[in-house]
Amino acid sequence: MNQAIPVLDLIDRKIVAVLMEDATTPIAQIADRVGLSQTPCWKRIQKLEAAGVIERRVAIANGALLGFGLTVFVGIEAPDHSTEWRDTFTRAVDRLPEVMEAWRMAGEIDYLLRVAVPDMAAYDRFYKTLTDSVAIKNLTSQFAMERMRHTTAYPVNTRDR
C-alpha cells in the first residue's frame, strides 16, 4: 500500500535538507537557517516525523574503520515468485546482519542486496548461510573496489518553485 505523499512547503523542505545533512544540528541553528523561531521549527520537525517524512535520525559510521572492509552487491534470481518463497527469503535476509540493504527489483535480477563483511572468508560464510536458508535459482556477487560517492540525503528542492 502506497503512503500518501505529504505536501511540503519551502520551510519544510529546508528543515529536511538541514537534518539530512546533519541530524545533530541544534534546533536553534535549524530555526535560524529556515527563518523560524525555535518552537514553530520544532513543531514542524515533529509533524515531519509523524508524517513519516523523517523516518529516523542516525549516526553514519565508517564501515572500514569498524572492520567491514568488503562491500558486496549480491544479485539474486528467485526460483519462483510465490508468496511462500518471498516470505522465506525475507526471513532469511532479516536474520543476516551483514545485509545492509535489500531491494526487490524489476529486470534481470529479482533482488539486490548490499552486504558488508570484513573479508572474503566472511563473505563465503554469509554466502553459505544464505544459500542454506533459502532456495535460489541464481546468485551473482559483485565486489566493490571503491566507493566513489555516497550520500543519504535526497536532493530536495530548497528554493521557491
Rank of each mutant, 00 (worst) to 15 (best):
residue 122 A to R: 11
residue 139 L to S: 04
residue 119 D to A: 06
residue 136 I to P: 02
residue 132 D to Y: 00
residue 91 R to Y: 05
residue 136 I to E: 00
residue 150 H to V: 13
residue 41 C to K: 05
residue 104 R to P: 05
residue 49 E to Q: 12
residue 78 A to G: 05
residue 40 P to K: 13
residue 114 R to N: 06
residue 45 I to S: 08
residue 100 M to P: 00
residue 145 M to T: 15
residue 157 N to H: 02
residue 82 S to R: 11
residue 75 G to H: 08
residue 36 L to Q: 03
residue 94 D to V: 03
residue 43 K to Y: 05
residue 57 R to L: 07
residue 156 V to T: 10
residue 97 P to V: 03
residue 161 R to E: 13
residue 61 A to P: 13
residue 98 E to S: 12
residue 139 L to W: 06
residue 64 A to G: 14
residue 76 I to K: 07
residue 159 R to A: 02
residue 129 T to G: 06
residue 141 S to A: 10
residue 65 L to K: 15
residue 91 R to E: 09
residue 149 R to P: 00
residue 57 R to F: 08
residue 101 E to Y: 08
residue 124 D to C: 03
residue 160 D to Y: 15
residue 130 L to T: 07
residue 112 L to F: 05
residue 81 H to S: 06
residue 135 A to N: 09
residue 76 I to V: 15
residue 76 I to L: 06
residue 133 S to N: 10
residue 111 Y to M: 06
residue 67 G to K: 03
residue 142 Q to W: 04
residue 91 R to F: 03
residue 144 A to E: 11
residue 128 K to M: 01
residue 159 R to F: 08
residue 68 F to Q: 14
residue 88 T to A: 08
residue 43 K to G: 01
residue 153 A to L: 09
residue 52 G to N: 10
residue 114 R to C: 05
residue 74 V to L: 01
residue 44 R to N: 00
residue 136 I to K: 07
residue 120 M to Y: 12
residue 65 L to Y: 14
residue 60 I to L: 15
residue 99 V to M: 01
residue 47 K to D: 12
residue 118 P to G: 13
residue 159 R to P: 04
residue 84 E to S: 10
residue 118 P to S: 08
residue 111 Y to I: 04
residue 38 Q to A: 04
residue 161 R to V: 07
residue 93 V to I: 14
residue 160 D to H: 13
residue 137 K to D: 09
residue 53 V to F: 09
residue 70 L to P: 13
residue 39 T to Y: 13
residue 128 K to T: 15
residue 129 T to E: 01
residue 58 V to L: 09
residue 74 V to K: 09
residue 131 T to N: 07
residue 82 S to I: 12
residue 69 G to P: 15
residue 75 G to C: 10
residue 64 A to N: 15
residue 58 V to T: 14
residue 149 R to C: 02
residue 84 E to H: 13
residue 73 F to W: 15
residue 158 T to E: 06
residue 95 R to K: 09
residue 159 R to I: 07
residue 42 W to R: 14
residue 80 D to P: 05
residue 161 R to K: 01
residue 71 T to E: 06
residue 119 D to L: 00
residue 154 Y to A: 01
residue 106 A to Y: 13
residue 39 T to E: 12
residue 43 K to R: 14
